[in-house]
């Protein structure tokens, strides 16, 4: 493992001086405090850190769900910080895939339909069945979320996120609600997707064991990046010790 110095591939995200302050009543919370960060095309990054260290806030801002208080976020050279609601919606729709801890599947739609929900509005999607095959769920396409296990639900969520062929895949604690065996299956799906689609993938996790599957690891502390490391040798998800 070595410290990151020179960029090797073109940047998909270029973040400089990012600050986010939340005000709830009289309390002011500085969630991000002058963060600089760079994600390269096709790489898999893991964001590590304790609760409240600012990783989710960063993910929300680069995912177009939230706006920074100050600083700059460039997606392929385009500034996101001052974008309108409508532009952010289009940005999410065309470029970003999300995976969340609690899956956020639509309970009234089957697995296939949950994926089709997104492909219907995407510009160059893959067929929903292909996306589900990519996560190994080709035999569970007609099942509703209530009929699927947690791991299966999360894989549907991954299929849904990648079916639009996004340039960015943002995963917030994707294994947080899963046991280790299921978590590994989900990570395998993410690694495979990263490999095969070339989507830049950022994964937030509490689980330090996962760090080794990534190209790059950012560690967060108190709203700042404490360290950034590049993995010279990555391990397979099946080798992750939970």
């Amino acid at each position: 493992m070595r410290s990151d110095t020179a960029p090797s591939r073109p940047a998909i995200f270029d973040v400089t001086g990012l600050t986010k302050i939340y005000r709830t009543g009289e309390v002011e919370v500085r969630a991000l405090n002058g963060v600089d960060l760079r994600l390269e095309q096709g790489e898999m990054a893991v964001l590590l850190g304790p609760s409240g260290s600012g990783k989710s806030t960063l993910l929300n801002i680069i995912g177009g769900l939230d706006r920074p208080t100050s600083g700059s976020v460039k997606f392929k050279g385009e500034e996101l910080a001052g974008a309108s609601d409508r532009d952010l919606t289009l940005y999410r729709r065309n470029h970003v895939g999300f995976v969340f801890q609690f899956y956020n599947l639509i309970p009234s739609l089957t697995a296939w339909e949950n994926v089709a929900l997104v492909t219907e509005v995407a510009t160059h999607p893959m067929p929903p069945a292909d996306a589900l095959a990519l996560v190994g769920l080709e035999s569970r396409m007609d099942h509703f979320p209530a009929q699927l296990s947690g791991g299966e639900q999360q894989r549907v969520a991954i299929a849904r996120a990648i079916a639009k062929r996004p340039e960015v895949l943002l995963c917030d604690e994707p294994t947080g609600a899963l046991d280790s065996a299921t978590g590994i299956i989900v990570l395998e799906a993410l690694a495979r997707v990263n490999e095969e689609t070339g989507a830049t993938t950022a994964i937030i996790t509490h689980n330090a064991g996962i760090r080794k599957i990534a190209h790059r690891v950012y560690s967060f502390l108190d709203g700042q990046i404490a360290s950034c490391e590049l993995n010279e040798e990555r391990i397979k998800p099946s080798e992750v010790s939970w």
Binding site: T89, L90, R93, N104, V118, R160
Partner: peptide, 9 residues
């Protein structure tokens, strides 16, 4: 969730 996936209001 739909809004997050890029559906408009």
């Amino acid at each position: 969730s739909l809004r997050v996936f890029g559906f408009t209001s």
